[in-house]
């Protein structure tokens, strides 16, 4: 394989024998390192996958790298769990994460559009303000937020997990960067000349142009919400409202007290990450491209 590469490359073709050997060595070392990190990144997931297919007795009997046939048994014991219903939690988490993703992307796009297209008083001030608040961790305001939700009777509802998504400074920043590089203001002017009102211009002209950015941020916002433990753990205490991470937290706290079916345990963990893994496997190229688009461009 290496020699084929060398032949293709005119610049490397000039290298002397000694340099060729050096290049070969560094290539081999690089591949070895890449294989190492691949194993490192996937090992835990492989164990998870294998053990989710093994019964409690098989798992207790010893470590194995080969899957078994008891995936159905484990799935059934998860379904028979009476203290929580992870499938309902998955559905709830999915709806919350979906709503969060849509709100975050739509309103971030809208805000970015407002600041990019219109020259209103205080625009630069608002922009700077968002830049400043971008780094503040949301946990810092959680006491006030919890207190407010408590007083408004919003504990054990999903509203506190969804509504704040409208104001996401990080997504806004990404959208603004994207708009600057893709939407010429002349297009907006042209739409005006054609008699389009401002909202229509945003919805029918700007949004389609922003589609790639929206898709990437939709995925990130969805995943962040799906994975979020801190805030839901404070807001939600009723078992039939549990989101997926709270189920895991509950299962973990339960481990101290009693015997656990390990096959069942691995199955719960597998179910909790499965939707994200599936989305990732399908869209990974697109997602990875999206990581860099907004973040270091500044």
């Amino acid at each position: 394989m290496a020699s084929k590469n060398l032949g293709n490359d005119s610049y490397i073709g000039y290298l002397h024998g000694k340099d060729k050997i050096k290049l070969l060595i560094s290539r081999i070392a690089s591949y070895a390192f890449l294989v190492f990190v691949t194993v490192l990144s996937l090992a835990a997931f492989y164990i998870l996958l294998v053990n989710a297919t093994r019964s409690n007795n098989e798992i207790a009997a010893g470590f194995s790298l080969l899957p078994s046939i008891n995936i159905g048994t484990n799935l059934q014991s998860v379904m028979e769990e009476t203290r929580f219903n992870i499938f309902k939690s998955m559905l709830m988490s999915f709806l919350i994460a979906g709503a969060t993703g849509i709100l975050t992307t739509y309103f971030s796009a809208m805000t970015a559009y407002g600041i990019y297209v219109y020259d209103f008083r205080g625009r630069n001030l608002l922009y700077k303000f968002i830049m400043v608040i971008m780094m503040i961790p949301t946990q810092v305001s959680s006491i006030g937020f919890f207190d407010m939700c408590q007083q408004l009777g919003l504990l054990n509802t999903y509203w506190p997990l969804i509504v704040p998504a409208v104001a996401s400074p990080v997504t806004f920043f990404y959208m603004k960067q994207y708009l600057e590089s893709t939407l010429p203001l002349e297009i907006v002017e042209a739409a005006r000349v054609d008699g389009s009102n401002e909202f229509r211009t945003f919805n029918t002209i700007s949004l389609p142009i922003m589609k790639p950015a929206i898709a990437v941020q939709l995925i990130f916002a969805f995943v962040a919400s799906w994975n979020n433990l801190f805030l839901p753990n404070l807001i939600i205490s009723k078992k039939d409202l549990y989101t997926v991470p709270i189920v895991l937290s509950f299962v973990r706290s339960d481990l101290n007290s009693q015997f656990q079916d390990l096959g069942y345990l691995y199955m719960v963990i597998l179910l909790s990450i499965l939707p994200v893994v599936i989305v990732y496997v399908i869209l990974s190229k697109f997602i990875i491209k999206g990581v860099t688009l907004g973040s270091v461009k500044g």
């Binding site: 600041i115 219109y118 006491i143």
Partner: peptide, 23 residues
């Protein structure tokens, strides 16, 4: 422009700024 940025700042004020200050 103000109309477009308003929802963001209203929600920010209620869900983050006010809680931050009350914290």
């Amino acid at each position: 422009g103000v109309v477009f940025v308003l929802p963001f700042f209203i929600v920010f004020a209620i869900c983050q700024l006010y809680p931050l200050l009350s914290t």
